[in-house]
Design a protein around this nucleic acid. Structure first.
Length: 463
RNA sequence: UCCUCCUUAGCUCAGUUGGUUAGAGCGGCUGACUGUUAAUCAGUAGGUCCCUGGUUCAAGCCCAGGAGGGGGAGCCA
């Protein structure tokens, strides 16, 4: 008989049908003449209750081997439950144990565990309700991202993970090398001789696919990337990872307003998609971790994001009368406390800040006519701060070359990038969304290490 | 990297002014129980008090260094 997924049994409830279910036992409750088993197979957060009567053939032997964490198959009739708490249950005719889990050493118990403890057993934590919900939401968001862009006619572009230039400027990079680390070849001046390395030059793990993505947008019009990125920053916070996933759409003929429109529509689409696909998981997370999760998601879904310029934000911050730890002034970047004030206290909704001073932003952002600001935008969310950073790109060759020179960047490294402006340049825009930052918001988890299966952070690459 | 807090049983934590044999709840195990659902009830086992060094008659507790973790900040997504 073909195995049924527990989710479909709850949906279709084929009462008085003989079925096979397979999964992992969450708890066993024994009494004299029967046992209850709670079975979870990952298809839903809900467990199927299995009732095993002591009269079942081989009962004593099989029930003795079953404990929390064991993997079993159960065959029997799906019946309406006599007890409260579930509509249907399985009246077992036979049980087969695939894998036992020694209760003396199995680290997961049926009671709750701290997230800190579960991080130490990341290979097993997916067996908990919490991480089952997080994994399912992560899957749904990944699928929803592709669906959103595909429906809009965007092309999915694969940008390289190993990059030959260190010019993306988004942070410290990991080196990629096959040189013998015990005997590194040196040039006469003492510098490492990368000419004998695999790629015959110094290579790194990518920190952003944007520059490559721009080349595709200037041919295919609308593209997006969705892949891993790497930052070797020594960042020890609940919002940073050394390895994370990023979504970077890039659109020809979009100005900054079009860019902001797309970002807002995109985020709302994903929240709506989470409600459509993971309602029960969201309800669980709302109940267990963050009682305002669902209302916050609904609020973001149903209200326009507040848009204002950096300059207007500085005015609000300097006249609001609130004392900040870091001073506010035009020309300096906003600190976390400033962003939080705007989002959580002043506007009480997501905020899109635009037109930042050019001196605190990257070289590729389109200069405004005032000579002081660039067409940058940051989308700020309650609780997590910057979730999206983007800009209209500088499409004018001369302006871009001038900016590269002013910032003393190695112009020769950008020759391929500048070709996009040299030949058939076009106004275009794009943004980057940190996938795990999105998941923090959608799941209500507080620490980014809990929304990626195996987090990589400074000093930690276990599993 | 900086600030700050923490580290005691499998887990979550108490542990008084430095004082004899370090406790609880949960989990595990044993047993009871005819519908439980974080089952209930009774019993029971379980400890490198993070590591190293120091102070002291005596250290889980005080001091120094180290390791690991949490929260906050910076950097950013």
């Amino acid at each position: 008989m073909k195995r049924s997924k527990i989710k479909s049994l709850f949906q279709d409830a084929p009462i008085q049908t003989r079925v096979v279910v397979k999964g992992w036992v969450r708890t066993k409750r024994e009494s004299k003449t029967f046992s209850f088993l709670e079975l979870n197979d990952g298809s839903t957060i809900r467990n199927l209750q299995i009732v095993a009567d002591a009269g079942m053939p081989g009962y004593d032997e099989v029930i003795r081997k079953i404990s929390t964490g064991a993997c079993i198959a159960a065959t029997g009739m799906l019946v309406a439950s006599q007890g409260k708490g579930q509509s249907v249950e399985l009246q077992a005719e036979s049980l087969e144990v695939y894998g036992t889990a020694d209760p003396e050493t199995y680290p997961l118990q049926k009671k709750g565990h701290s997230l800190e403890f579960l991080r130490e057993i990341a290979h097993l934590r997916v067996r908990t309700n919490t991480f089952g919900a997080v994994y399912r939401l992560r899957n749904a968001m990944a699928y929803g991202i592709h669906q959103f862009f595909q429906e809009k006619g965007f092309y999915y572009v694969h940008t390289p993970i190993i990059t030959g230039s260190d010019t993306e400027g988004a942070g410290e990079m990991f080196s990629v090398t096959t040189l013998n680390l015990k005997n590194i070849p040196l040039q006469e001046n003492g510098a490492i001789d990368f000419a004998s390395d695999f790629f015959e030059k110094h290579t790194h793990l990518t920190v952003s696919g944007q520059l490559n993505g721009e080349t595709a947008a200037l041919a295919l019009s609308d593209i997006y990337t969705f892949g891993p990125t790497f930052r070797a920053e020594n960042s020890n916070t609940g919002r940073h990872l050394a390895e994370f996933w990023m979504i970077e759409p890039e659109m020809a003929f979009y100005d900054l307003n079009d860019n902001a429109d797309l970002a807002e529509e995109f985020l709302k689409y994903l929240i709506s998609y989470a409600f459509q696909t993971c309602q029960e998981d969201l309800e669980f997370l709302n109940k267990m971790y963050d009682n305002e999760l669902i209302s916050r998601l609904q609020f973001v879904l149903n209200n326009p994001f507040k848009r204002l310029t950096y300059t207007e934000a500085i005015d609000i911050l300097t006249t609001c009368g609130k004392k900040f730890e870091f001073p506010v002034g035009w020309g300096t970047d906003l600190q976390s406390e400033h962003e939080r004030y705007l989002v959580e206290q002043h506007f009480k909704c997501p905020v899109i800040l635009t037109d930042y001073p050019r001196d605190i932003k990257a070289f590729y952002m389109r200069a405004n006519e005032d000579g002081k600001t660039v067409r940058a935008m940051d989308v700020l969310f309650p609780g997590i701060g910057e979730i999206i950073g983007g800009s209209q790109r500088e499409e004018r060759l001369e302006a871009l070359e001038k900016r590269i020179a002013e910032m003393q960047l190695p112009a020769e490294e950008y020759s391929w990038y500048l070709d996009t402006r040299r030949y058939g340049s076009a106004p275009h825009s794009g943004f980057g969304l940190g996938f795990e930052r999105l998941l923090l918001f959608v799941t209500g988890m507080a620490n980014i290490r809990d929304v990626i299966p195996f987090p990589r952070t400074p000093g930690n690459a276990s599993f």
